[in-house]
């Protein structure tokens, strides 16, 4: 599965076993996307949240 980067129009390869909440990165511009929906028809992406100062372990 492939989709286009909203920022640079680069090709983003989506994992076959994508899970909602998973992060994929555009290989061309480095923008992070989050998988927002997985349906039999395909996978939807939205721009990933910025790293928060309380993020981590």
């Amino acid at each position: 599965m492939k989709t286009k980067c909203l920022e640079c129009d680069g090709d983003i390869e989506l994992p076959e076993d994508a899970i909602v909440g998973e992060i994929v990165t555009c290989p061309d511009c480095g923008l992070d996307y989050e998988v927002s929906k997985v349906t039999p028809k395909g996978v939807s992406l939205k721009k990933a949240e910025e790293i928060g100062e309380d993020w981590g372990e």
Binding site: I19, V20, G21, I23, V35
Partner: peptide, 14 residues
């Protein structure tokens, strides 16, 4: 409960 699927969450789910 998750807000981002890291390697770890994916490993637990799989």
């Amino acid at each position: 409960v998750f807000d981002r699927i890291r390697w770890e969450e994916k490993a637990i789910i799989e």
